[in-house]
Design a protein around this nucleic acid. Sequence first.
DNA 1: CAGTTACGTAAGTCATCACTTACGGTAAGT
DNA 2: ACTTACCGTAAGTGATGACTTACGTAACTG
Lengths: 103, 103
Amino acid sequence: MTYVTAVLDALGDPTRRAIFERLHGGARAVGEIARDVPVSRPAVSQHLRVLKSAGLVTDRADGTRRLYSVSQEGLAALRAYLDDFWEQALTGFKAAAERGGKS
Amino acid sequence: MTYVTAVLDALGDPTRRAIFERLHGGARAVGEIARDVPVSRPAVSQHLRVLKSAGLVTDRADGTRRLYSVSQEGLAALRAYLDDFWEQALTGFKAAAERGGKS
DNA sequence: CAGTTACGTAAGTCATCACTTACGGTAAGT
DNA sequence: ACTTACCGTAAGTGATGACTTACGTAACTG
């Protein structure tokens, strides 16, 4: 829930979105991702750390490699945030409408 | 739909989120928002411009004031993006599972 | 037990962007 | 017409953070 700050922060960077979106096909290794993206491998590692701390990805070891895959909780938190916000916006709008015109 | 880049970019800033969230109760003026947030009024104006170009808010004139309120399209685009991403992630996961172990 | 592969982290640089002050413009009030 | 209130924009500055190179570590291979 108050994950959302980290989630939106993480998804706020274009490179990080690119990295995150390359994971929707399944688990991938760091160097493998780095080949598809115009930044160095360490940069990818750093981005993955941010994505991980936001609950958007999980990692597991596979020999010398490290596989990253999409995690549910980050997106779930974001969705909950959107739902909540939208609901509050609706009730706020309704209340304003019932008050009549404007303030 | 490819609004989403701008939407996530806009929501990626904490101050902008704070401003955006103060709008869920109904339309508010710029100076009114600026009082609740620890930045100057011009800064709020600039943030509102970003939020507007992302389809997250709309504005209308009210005398010398300018009222900003939540817009639906930005959040709708974001939700569509999430849905799409999640669906692709699921099918990708399923395909990987049906392939057996790993690559 | 070297050598190789794959990765994370540290340190430093550079660019982006958030913020401020200053200014101009429009609408309402006197 | 003058003043006041409210706002957007321009220009310049400062700080955050994205990126690179260099280094150290863990696991597989011969």
